[in-house]
Design a protein around this nucleic acid. Sequence first.
DNA 1: TTAGTGTGTTAAGATTTTATAAAAGTTGAA
DNA 2: TTCAACTTTTATAAAATCTTAACACACTAA
Lengths: 226, 226
Amino acid sequence: MSKKILIADDESRLLKLLSDYLVREGYVVTTAIDGQAALDKFYMDRSIDMAILDVMMPEMDGYTVCREIRAVSDIPIIILTAKSEESDVLNGFECGADEFISKPFSPKILVAKVNALYKRAHGDSEENQKIEMGGIVLDKKAHQVTAGGINVNLSVKEFELLAYFMENADIALSRDKILNGVWEYDYFGDARTIDTHVKKLRAKLGKRGYYIKTIWGMGYKFEVPL
Amino acid sequence: MSKKILIADDESRLLKLLSDYLVREGYVVTTAIDGQAALDKFYMDRSIDMAILDVMMPEMDGYTVCREIRAVSDIPIIILTAKSEESDVLNGFECGADEFISKPFSPKILVAKVNALYKRAHGDSEENQKIEMGGIVLDKKAHQVTAGGINVNLSVKEFELLAYFMENADIALSRDKILNGVWEYDYFGDARTIDTHVKKLRAKLGKRGYYIKTIWGMGYKFEVPL
DNA sequence: TTAGTGTGTTAAGATTTTATAAAAGTTGAA
DNA sequence: TTCAACTTTTATAAAATCTTAACACACTAA
């Protein structure tokens, strides 16, 4: 597997920095110092898997390069923007890019986005949105749950809570964690709310409801018995 | 655990606002009104766990402060930028910051990012925390204990007490130390409380219960026989 | 051996935490 | 708007745990 990335930016120091980071992550990097050069390199080497394009470049701007590439290829494209102006964003979406990162940004963020895009493009974790445990099947995409083959009708919060439990099976979860995981960041509500939803979930899941164990003085844990 | 954050910004209103939010989240906040002051405070108090730096500050800008700190420390650093400063990519990239947040931003987002960074920096704290000794397996993540492969059901205090013992195996622990380690800092209760819990622990651990040895006139020690 | 001190055991009740049910508030569709 | 479904809060009951106290027992030193 190649993992070849094309980076185009007219600031050579930035080019070097980005390149270093990505090489360290195991990517093969090709660089270009202007838009025309980027396009040339893209046509020359059709094994390129991803492109990172600065907007402001001599010869040809990033949007144009993006459109040209997109006309013939579906590879992930990341656009680096210097300004977060409305027109830029519109331009960006229209050109068919997958991600935007506005400067300045930390190398970590860039690397994280590159990794995520790469994964998505290569179906590594393909819409793997079905979880099955102990006879409970949770289908995130269809937003549907069955227990022992029988459809269980859950409300949104109940569904999200169950999903959170199943994704963190065998882990003891404090109410705080559950609030952070299922509710909003700054939710300041009563932790007893969780109890109520747990009660409903247990009831709806029937005998399988007690996969959700109470850990007294601590929280809950989803655990399928052996 | 300290959770100490240094915030540097020359706008005192913003400083106060951020500080309030973070204090509410349980952080200890130190503030500085210019870059030099920030650096001074950082050097003065080396227990600071995270820094939030505005770019535009008198005396010394945020990037410089960031670089200075980064030269001697790996703490997470968040840089606050204004839109007009966004073009300063190289500075941003090179200074080694972990996150950039451009003004204006919602305090909610800042708090969320601070929390995320804090977690990441502290090794996710509960990844794979399994201790095994003499056939007793204590899994902090799952909040579960097995002795000889058989599940042992412990209450919270019992669990914490066992964890404390196992983390301090082969060390003689006075009741005072145990109280400080497992109970609240200024717990004012009867030392006999520990005895009661030790008894229950021993009983629940079966024959392995006597790994918890009594040191007469001193306290207890967890020790696995050879 | 014996007094003195520290520890083990037990059980009751005080405290904390969770379950349940019902009321109140929200939201979105008809 | 009104209704219905959902979410959240509140109140109370029920359960589990923690602490205390009392006493029996074990260890140590004179």
